[in-house]
Nucleic acid binder design. Structure first.
Lengths: 149, 149
DNA sequence: ACTATATACTTGCATAATGCAAATAAATTT
DNA sequence: AAATTTATTTGCATTATGCAAGTATATAGT
């Protein structure tokens, strides 16, 4: 069994650092890295509930609840009642929140494309396809993240 | 410019969640995720100083200093003076620290190989090569993580 | 319909993590 | 030998975290 963790660890760390710097450079004090993840995920999902986002991000729901409060106070997300279930809160980005999310998105994409631009067209294609492939495999694998033996 | 951030964001998140669960399942309360990153990096580098590890992980040196204290108290890392410069502290894993690091490493590798096992041999090869390629490109790119424009 | 149970979210509280400013200590420069 | 730089630590205030308990709404069992 080869040590494949190394590669993922390094990649993940580098991407994390890149994201953090991007988040800083375009939003300054406005949003933290975890908050940017929340904006990202709310933007991705369709009419998500609090639970939906918290689970997707693997966050404790109580911590998440407080972050949502912070982001609501900052005017980046809006809480709406679910039409048929009063317990559920639906989350959405405000126009300001969307602006922030788009800014981060643009900044990260610019950085990533800069990195990718040092590769050949073929390599670039392969890398992107590979990541997609791996993400699909992650999703498929139900045994993922379960303690072994 | 295509949205390549999505793929990296998802991959990075999934790997983060996987790592966290692995860290939990083999070390329980012993070490947090960030602490596992510290052990990982100390194990990777050759006679690293505090600075070396903090910079590698993108951590604030003061936060790092405290985490090192915690890990030293837990008996997982050892601080030694630099032979010729008394300002510098050299970090190393204790036998117990190495045991923990190896346990996490094994657990993460097992999980990852589980995920990879759902692919064809060819795909697996391609994915691993691609990640290596991307990591190399990251390292090459000096403009990485600098605000655009 | 009525109680019991489950679900979604919030709040209390204690702890851990974070980072800036300042302190200490040991090189290095001038 | 004083001034400056480098490496690490500590003070302090802020933020983040998560368990336990609380509130409110929905669903199930009788």
């Amino acid at each position: 069994m080869e040590n494949v963790r190394n590669m993922f660890q390094i990649m993940s760390r580098n991407f994390g650092l890149l994201s953090e710097q991007c988040c800083d450079s375009c939003c300054g004090q406005e949003v933290s890295l975890v908050q940017s993840h929340i904006l990202y995920e709310i933007n991705r999902q369709h009419n998500p509930s609090m639970q939906d986002i918290a689970v997707a991000l693997g966050m404790d729901i109580t911590t998440f609840s407080r972050q949502v409060k912070t982001l609501t106070d900052k005017g980046f997300i809006k809480k709406s009642p679910h039409p048929s279930d009063q317990r559920i809160t639906i989350l959405s980005l405000t126009p300001e929140g969307l602006t922030v999310e788009n800014a981060i998105n643009l900044t990260v994409n610019t950085q990533l494309n800069g990195v990718l631009s040092t590769m050949s067209e073929f390599e670039r294609e392969t890398v992107l396809r590979s990541i997609q492939l791996f993400n699909d495999a992650m999703k498929r694998s139900a045994t993922c993240c379960v303690p072994p033996k």
